[in-house]
Design a protein around this nucleic acid. Structure first.
Lengths: 226, 226
DNA sequence: TTCCAACGGTTTGTATACAATATAATGCAT
DNA sequence: ATGCATTATATTGTATACAAACCGTTGGAA
């Protein structure tokens, strides 16, 4: 832990754990032992506990009384609800952004889109998802509502792993690229209603791919021959 | 603090502080001294600090390093953003609810609406706002998406004070009642698009009333003769 | 009189100790 | 061998102590 920083340790620890979750170093459902985390991060239990409270309020971590904390996990049902909510939120961000984009903004968006096309041509889903995230964050920023932005960012952290998994579904990569092509067209035309609708569809498609993935994963676990 | 409860103290303290804020016993911008709160709630500093972290992550409280916590406050600009975001969220809840309402649900909603009419006839804004809150929470529940519900509830707590103030604006009480009459009609017709639009308008009107209120309040403060 | 530095008191941030709860291991009875 | 009760260990929840930072007051210098 960086002692030079002016941020309280609790805040820094929360950020670090967030980072570890994002990097898949801490996975959904994983136990978060206070002892072990304290050793790992080199802090005492007090700021670590405060950090876990922060992350719990954000939904990244669940704390069960007397049993400790785990990285949050979701049922298929939860996944559906999260994507439905995210569709509403990101759809609105897309609508507001399409209404508020400057020419400079659009150039930047075109450039981000071009990076997506490059990653797609190179058949590189990791790079694609990285630029995908930047594109979505750009839309969110250009929506110009920091409150919406904060809500979306919070929910994004919770569903991030899901998003990564869906891109590896057969055909999903190509489909996602196609959705983004339609999206950028709506933004070029500053057609806010179309942008909203297409963004919502984009999220729904992600959700469908994931629900299929989890259903099959469930089946694989259940079969005795597996 | 109730020792019989199975919840950790931190959780209980967070709930109690939330309650105090809702009851206007702790007001926007107010300093939250750890010492004083510990005495007031009869707990030690550790669960109190954890509680403040929870509330800070929710946006109800702001914590400045080495300076302590305050009940969150908003600029006029923030107020606008919050209502815009809430319009998106509650609009979507209204849409989903209109799609998903059973006949029994609609009866309950009618009954809640009738309470609003009664409070309006009695010229009782406090009762009106209390039933108003129940009506909105019912819509949110009937939207059937717990993730959306959690986001909306969180944001509602942050903007609650604003909502209370707007109803006291001249003409706003009558206007709000009229908006609710149109809303219930959209629900009766299960017209989801109309429900969404009307709900968004309802939130926009609240926002306008508040921006006017704060602008005038700002002026009052500034005038030397005041 | 005003401004700045030093000092003391207060409050926040973190570490550590103690208490309570959960879990694992061991021993005994069937 | 298995199941249950008891004991030991590990972990979480809370209280308390210590350190660091902030703020207000006072005194001295300009």
């Amino acid at each position: 832990m960086n002692k030079i920083s002016d941020k309280p340790l609790a805040t820094q620890v929360a950020e670090e754990i967030r980072r570890l979750i994002r990097a898949n170093k801490l996975v959904s459902g994983q136990r978060l032992s206070e002892q072990r985390l304290c050793e790992r991060l080199g802090v005492s239990r007090t700021p670590l506990r405060e950090a876990l409270r922060i992350l719990s309020a954000e939904g990244l971590v669940t704390i069960s009384p007397n049993k400790g904390a785990r990285v949050a996990e979701s049922s298929i049902e939860d996944t559906f609800y999260m994507f439905e909510a995210m569709g509403v939120l990101e759809g609105s961000c897309a609508r507001l952004a399409a209404e508020r984009l400057t020419d400079t903004d659009l150039e930047k968006m075109e450039s981000l889109h071009e990076q997506l096309e490059t990653a797609h041509r190179n058949a590189d889903p990791e790079s694609y998802m990285s630029w995908n995230r930047e594109f979505h964050e750009f839309v969110q920023e250009k929506a110009g509502n920091p409150v919406l932005g904060r809500i979306v960012s919070g929910l994004r952290d919770v569903i991030l792993l899901h998003r990564y998994r869906q891109i590896y579904r057969p055909g999903r990569f190509d489909e996602s690229m196609e959705e983004h092509r339609r999206l950028i067209e709506a933004f070029r035309a500053r057609d806010s209603e179309r942008a909203e609708r297409l963004m919502q569809t984009h999220l729904q498609k992600q959700c469908q791919a994931l629900v299929t993935y989890y259903a099959e994963k469930g089946k694989e676990v259940v079969y005795p021959g597996d």
